[in-house]
Design a protein around this nucleic acid. Structure first.
Length: 408
RNA sequence: GCGCAGGUGACAGAGCGGUCAAUUGUACUAGACUGUAAAUCUAGCGCCUUAACGGCUACGAAGGUUCGAAUCCUUCCCUGCGCA
């Protein structure tokens, strides 16, 4: 299913191929477009095909809640999304964080100075564990984490009752959804969690990983997820433990500060099997991708192309800009010089897109999404070519200089 | 001409004696967004000041009452509706 076809000499970057039973092919490094509820916001399946999409990821938790009783007769993600692309499903492990401590702490998975420099505060971390277990963590925290699984009291799906997701249940749902690659149910910790909380959560994730492997009956590829926060010993332990389990691939999850991601990758990747695919969960800015690829990451998924496109942030080789800004009024420049995305090909200028956003034209977010997805897909293709031609380091250096030069 | 109802910051529209430079929404400006609670969110938005719990000018206009007025009184100007 995954095969490495070329390796860079100066870095750990590599080119690989992933195939599925539907005849879908993805060349890695690849950008996995996020379509949480089996659809990428503002995009139709046809749209996605026109921007070079090879891989997509949907979400177990959201689809499970959305589909409700109809899940049992679900036609399968490939049919629903009208694609042969390589499809993944996230396990719901991220929602343990995003609906839980992310809300309580008011943070996202990247960018917050983590607690890793503090001295270990075992009592505080123990308190967090117990509060979460009892489900009395915080008004905004709608998650209750137990050793057996996680309770959610998310009311966004017209259901005020607690719902319970366990490793076994997540796998069962993912088998029903039918993606090519499914993920183990894990716990993504908060950047504000300390050493001990991360240690306990990591052990829980390890236990859940075993349960996921045992629960799976399909032929889908199952990826294990490495956790451990920003702590070197935890991250290494997690990579060793998860890496030794019979997974079909490995994902690196969890939270870290902007600068810390590189360390996390440096700690984990050498301990993972060389020949198996490696996914970096939820990461997707240009710089991060270059860092990840250089360290041997094969696939990335991130909401940035779609979310930021919808919000008016346009990505280019020189970084990103916000077309919503007044400085773009009347601009006749294309979204990016030389871009051949559907929006640019259609002649959409920065000025026109600015006006469309200001006019609240529903098409504005769509054009932005078109451009961004196309951009990241072609950017990945450029990376692959560079690796194959043995000039990835040079390519990376050039890109980083450009970004620096433009203050991105 | 008479009778009602009104005139508030870019617009809409609160406030109806002090805590009002004035609720709120929109518009505008800037910023954020990293396994999607997100076509979303945050902040600013009279002038001066780097900034302010600092100064100044403000609620149609001009006077007045009051320690104090966007809020009360008088006159004037203007707008809408109704009647002539």
């Amino acid at each position: 299913m995954f095969k490495i076809v070329a390796k860079d000499k100066e870095s750990k970057a590599r080119v690989g191929v992933i195939r599925n039973a539907h005849g879908g092919v993805a060349e890695t490094p690849s950008y996995v477009i996020v379509g949480t509820r089996a659809s990428v916001r503002t995009m139709t399946p046809e749209d996605l095909a026109t921007v070079g999409t090879q891989m997509m990821i949907a979400n177990t938790y959201h689809l499970w809640r959305m589909l409700g009783d109809t899940l049992s007769s679900f036609e399968g993600l490939h049919t629903r999304m009208k694609t042969d692309n390589i499809l993944m499903t996230d396990s719901g492990g991220f929602q343990v964080f995003s609906l839980g401590f992310a809300r309580e702490h008011g943070v996202s998975k990247v960018g917050v100075a983590s607690a890793h420099r503090e001295r270990p505060r075992i009592f505080r971390d123990a308190l967090l564990q117990v509060r979460s277990f009892l489900g009395i963590s915080h008004k905004r925290n709608s998650v209750r984490i137990t050793p057996w699984g996680t309770y959610f009291k998310d009311e966004n799906y017209g259901d005020k009752h607690l719902v319970f997701l366990s490793p076994e249940k997540s796998i069962k749902i993912q088998e029903k959804l039918g993606a090519d690659i499914i993920l183990a149910f894990d716990e993504c910790t908060s950047p504000k969690h300390g050493y001990w909380y991360n240690k306990w959560a990591m052990n829980r994730t390890h236990k859940w990983a075993k349960q996921c492997i045992a629960a799976k009956t399909s032929s889908q590829a199952l990826y294990g997820i490495v956790q451990g926060g920003n702590f070197e010993d935890l991250r290494k332990e997690s990579a060793r433990v998860i890496g030794a389990m019979p997974f079909d691939g490995f994902a690196i999850g969890g939270s870290f500060g902007e600068e810390e991601m590189k360390n996390v990758l440096d700690w984990c990747i050498p301990l993972l099997p060389e020949e198996k695919p490696r996914h970096l969960l939820g990461i997707g800015r240009i710089k991060d991708i270059l860092e990840g690829v250089a360290r041997g990451i094969d696939t990335f998924d991130c909401v940035i192309p779609s979310r930021e496109g919808r919000h008016g942030s346009i990505w280019t080789h020189k970084g990103r800009y916000d077309v919503t800004g007044a400085r773009h009024i009347g601009s006749n420049l294309p979204l990016e010089e030389g871009c051949r995305c559907p929006a640019c090909a259609r002649g959409v200028t920065r000025g026109a897109l600015h006006d469309a956003f200001k006019a609240k034209d529903m098409n504005a977010g769509r054009e932005g999404t078109f451009h961004n997805i196309y951009f990241f897909n072609t950017f990945m293709a450029e990376i692959r070519t560079a690796i194959k031609e043995g000039r990835f380091t040079e390519f990376r250096k050039k890109m980083e200089e450009q970004l620096l030069h433009h203050g991105a």
